[in-house]
Simulated assay, not measured.
Amino acid sequence: MGDGVVTLFLCGDVMLGRGVDQILPHPGDPTLREGYVRDARSYVESAEAVNGPIPAPVEPSWPWGEALRVLEEAAPDARIVNLETAVTRSDTFEPGKEIHYRMHPADMPALAVARPDVCVLANNHVLDFGHPGLEETLRSLYRAGLRTVGAGRNADEAHAPATVTVSRTARVLVFALGMESSGIPPGWAATEYVPGVAHVVEPSAAAAAETVRRVRQEKLPGDITVVSVHWGSNWGYRIPREHIRFARALVDGGVDVVHGHSSHHPRTIEVYRDRLILYGCGDFIDDYEGITGYERYRDDLRLAYFVSVEADTGRLAGLRMVPLRVRRMRLEPATDEDRDWLRATLDRISDSVHITLDPDGALALLHPAAAARSTASPRHGR
């Protein structure tokens, strides 16, 4: 923290399970129950077929690659990731789900190496191996000294915020929600007596009001509040109007940053009332290399978001985004062409802001205060 500004690192889905788990030092059982793939090692083979051999077993730092250097240089005050995998040895495959993600608990160093301050668990893979898998996930993260939010042993625990103290006078409060539109089964909702996730059926006005109520109950003067939301489809740039209304209602109610994820590629960026709304951060770590059909979205490109906010007001002070690309299940520096493509794409799909390319290769939000005064809505239907 410096000059009264708090900087947050945000990223999209961190999927250390399935194929990524198989290249780590302690891979779990590779058995899958997918329609066409029955062995998680097939995803490793697909990645190698596209970009070359992976020297498995790799060091725990391998999946993060260049991102670790980027994080060290940026030195954010809080690191927030969406951990989209169960951390378990359980074989209790959740029935009715096509895709299941798990990483072996012995490979926790592959998460801890990035030093996340908050691991968001309100997503559609944390209960892929049922309640036993969720309970082992929570135990594993607790033993590693990692904070969680968005899932718990009951509803109160699932909805409770994670708190990161960044100075004597500044805290970051992180709330998390998972919506049915991202593929979270309704039965995964935590209740008074049943473990699960902080589940929201739809982005309604009532759901926004309930979230705001929880935020106001916990927020103290000077606190910075982040609501991390797992929602929406995997592909495409269209932002549903109800998502826009929901995100803006959160900001109207006192939320400083809306951290959206679930899409496999970055989506619209909006500045509303001097607050940042990220509708979809895209995947950060996954095992999708070699999977075809969506090349036009360039899901091989990833973004590390560094959000700076004023400590005393929560207003957006700046946004830098560092482009990376995945090769052999490892994050590498993006090329000049990659950066240009990301800048042009984000600028095209984000009506109310303009994205520039800095001399160091990072993307930046141009004049966020001026952008905040724009009343234009994010594009629909692209």
Rank of each mutant, 00 (worst) to 15 (best):
V113G: 08
L301S: 04
A371V: 01
G17V: 13
G12H: 01
G130P: 02
W188E: 06
R79L: 02
G4C: 08
P333E: 12
A208L: 13
V201Y: 14
T137D: 01
I54M: 12
G133N: 04
A370G: 05
E66I: 01
Y193F: 13
W235M: 03
E98F: 13
G232S: 02
V257H: 07
A151E: 05
R38K: 12
Y288M: 14
G318E: 03
L141W: 14
G381P: 05
T88F: 05
R245Y: 08
L141C: 13
P53R: 11
T356P: 02
L146E: 04
D336I: 10
A205N: 11
T225S: 11
L220E: 11
V212A: 08
S182A: 15
G130Y: 04
A155Q: 10
Y36R: 06
P60A: 09
R273C: 10
Y297G: 08
H264C: 09
A86G: 09
T163I: 14
R325A: 05
R330T: 13
L32R: 01
V126C: 02
V174W: 02
R139E: 15
A362C: 15
P266T: 10
R298S: 14
E73H: 14
P105K: 12
R115M: 10
R213N: 12
S350I: 02
H104D: 03
D117H: 13
P203H: 01
R339Y: 00
R325W: 01
G52Y: 11
E135P: 09
L366H: 12
E136T: 09
P378W: 06
V37P: 12
V118A: 08
L346M: 15
A370N: 02
L173A: 03
G133T: 06
R245C: 07
G222V: 03
M179Y: 01
